[in-house]
Design a protein around this nucleic acid. Structure first.
Lengths: 135, 135
DNA sequence: CACCTGTTATATAAATCATATAACAGGTGC
DNA sequence: GCACCTGTTATATGATTTATATAACAGGTG
């Protein structure tokens, strides 16, 4: 079970928003290895979009190594974690973010702090879910 | 003077590539406050694209606070650096990058190291330019 | 007044995004 | 075998975005 919220007035494509929210769900341990995502049709119904839009998102997640797609079970969370690959993939995006950060005079320390805050926020979510397990 | 290289077979929009390269140019001090970018027509000619595509890029850079556009001089580098605004703007993008990083089991330390490496690379470029000033 | 700026308007072709309808391959449970 | 559920593929259509082209306007410079 996972809340997905699509902003239809966003300039970000729907399939892209869907990908991002699922990745964030994995980051927050809301989605863990072995869990299955709703089928493309079910997910499409739930959030009120087309099946093919969901399929596109799932295909990308598969290609990027976040899920494995099994014809009978559907999309199963399975994160590929080759450290070298991961570093290279992340570095590319990080470079763009840091370019802007540096233009705006943020220091490496500012960014270390930001990284820690965001990572802590991910962990905080884990704990909240664990301790509210009975609800 | 600044080399711009557009990958026409990229899935990234041309105006977006142009924005990114200019922002990276500022980050590397290749472009500094007060410098003027080539006029929209001149830049378009140089890299072989349409004037309006350049204009779109410049307009975005203006809106995001990287340049100020003067009708007579053109687009002048002028980076807005309100720290609070900068932190909030960067945080949003950073969150997406870190979500992927965490899924792939990268630690906060891994990312601190990456931040430092990228920042050092920006600085290294500054120095290279300074010491080769006579060429 | 020619010449350079950015800016705006309009039109057009191509690509992307989202949708819709339909069908197929394959596994599950009755 | 037969419904029923998966993902997957094909095809078509409309809306939006991207990139281009041509043209004109406002304003500052020499």
């Amino acid at each position: 079970m996972m809340y997905i919220e699509i902003d239809f007035s966003s300039d970000e494509a729907i399939y892209q928003q869907l990908c991002n929210q699922i990745i964030q769900g994995i980051a927050m341990s809301q989605l863990t290895d072995g869990m299955t995502l709703p089928s493309v049709r079910q997910m499409a119904d739930e959030i009120g979009i087309n099946m093919h839009t969901v399929n596109k998102a799932y295909s990308i997640l598969k290609q990027e190594g976040f899920v494995k797609v099994d014809r009978r079970k559907g999309a199963v969370i399975s994160v590929k974690s080759d450290k070298e690959e991961a570093l290279n993939s992340v570095r590319k995006d990080m470079r763009s973010v840091l370019a802007e950060a540096r233009c705006r005079n943020l220091t490496a320390e500012d960014l270390h702090r930001m990284v820690d805050e965001i990572y802590d926020a991910f962990d905080a979510y884990d704990k909240a879910v664990e301790s509210a397990g009975s609800e």
